[in-house]
Design a binder for these strands. Structure first.
Lengths: 121, 121
DNA sequence: ATGGAAATGAAACTCATTTTCATTTCTATG
DNA sequence: CATAGAAATGAAAATGAGTTTCATTTCCAT
């Protein structure tokens, strides 16, 4: 198993805590850091597993990685500019739990994202 | 410009109103329909432009197409056997609308899936 | 008919992401 | 210190979704 390369995390932070793997890679290259694209992907993957980083998808399907706080939350993403708001999902948690119970499911997880156009777009 | 091929729409309907382009294509092939992958993509694209169909993204980034207006529902998926239950999401709809309004977002859509282990697994 | 516009699909292409595998770097233990 | 095994690394090849190109076919309107 690979562990997350700290330089990747540092770069993601420097990028405003929001970038795709390719962007992180290009950024590191441009700043003269010697690293392989494979390692960038692996590190981001590890950061996701360690729940230090969150993955979302751009409209074109490219994965974007984003530093996130530890409270479990959901996202409100603008389809226009990609701006993201972290939101509480109390209602969702309950809904998920209810639905799961109703159908006899255990060890529940869920995903929920809202997307639309922000006031600026 | 191309127009949407009615057989593609029919197949998407038959698929439960919810499938990726590749799935629609494979389904048509399996059922002996003669069609090219390109046409499937073009037709789905047109259906999206005509707002007959909606696009979402799977977790792996693959685009999935969904009939609009179709009373929209969510899925409860078993991580073990892949069994899927379609569920109502009234609570989610309200939550999404509220959150969006609260942050000044318009033209809202959302995704929400629950996953866990079913009673058999 | 017939000429042009729209539709079609095979194949080549793009591009993000994953896999493979040989090499390098650590690290624990003798 | 030596050194063997484990983990990390990255170049290159592979994968797979989606797009583009272009030659061919199908549709119509005249």
């Amino acid at each position: 198993m690979s562990r997350s390369n700290p330089r990747v995390l540092a770069t993601l932070e420097r990028a405003g805590g929001f970038a795709s793997a390719q962007e992180v890679y290009r950024l590191m290259q441009r700043e003269g850091e010697s690293i392989g694209l494979t390692t960038v992907y692996r590190s981001l993957q590890s950061l996701v597993n360690e729940k230090i980083v969150d993955v979302l998808r751009r409209d074109d399907g490219e994965a974007i990685y984003r530093l996130c706080g530890d409270t479990h939350h959901h996202h409100l993403v603008c389809k226009g500019c990609g701006d993201t708001v972290e939101i509480e999902g109390g209602a969702i948690e309950k809904w998920a739990k209810n639905m799961a119970q109703e159908h006899g499911y255990r060890e529940i997880g869920h995903t929920a994202e809202i997307f639309g156009l922000c006031s600026k777009c």
